[in-house]
Simulated scan of single mutants.
Amino acid sequence: MTRVAVATAFGGPEVVEIVDEVVAQPAAGQVLIEIRASGVNPIDWKLYSGAFGSDESTLPMRLGSEAAGVVEAVGAGATGPAGPISVGDEVIVTGVTGAYAERLLAPGDAVLPKPSSLSWEEAAGFLLVAGTAYDTLEVASVAEGDTVLVHGAAGGVGSLVVQAALGRGARVIGTARPENHDALRAYGAEPVEYGDGLRERVGALAPDGVDAAIDTVGTDEAVDVSLALVSDRSRIVTIAAFGRAEQDGFPSVGGGNAESAERRKAARLTLVAAARDGELTVPVAKTFPLDRAADAHRELQGRHPRGKFVLVP
Rank of each mutant, 00 (worst) to 15 (best):
T2Y: 00
A5Q: 00
G11T: 01
V15H: 00
E17C: 01
I18Y: 00
A27F: 04
G39Y: 09
N41G: 04
D44G: 03
D44W: 01
S54I: 03
E66A: 09
E66G: 05
E66F: 06
A73M: 06
A82V: 15
G83Y: 08
P84S: 09
T94L: 04
T97Y: 06
R103M: 02
A106K: 02
L112M: 13
L112W: 14
K114L: 12
P115F: 10
A133M: 10
A133G: 15
S141R: 11
A143R: 14
G156Q: 07
R171Q: 04
R171F: 05
G174T: 10
E179Y: 03
N180W: 09
A189L: 09
E190K: 08
E190Y: 07
Y194I: 06
G195C: 08
R199I: 12
R201V: 10
A213L: 04
A228R: 01
V230Q: 07
S234C: 11
R244V: 10
G249T: 07
F250E: 06
A261G: 09
K265D: 09
A266Q: 13
A266G: 10
T270V: 14
A275Y: 06
A275P: 02
R276G: 08
L280Q: 15
T287N: 03
R298Q: 09
L300W: 10
R303D: 11
P305L: 03
R306E: 04
V310E: 05
L311S: 00
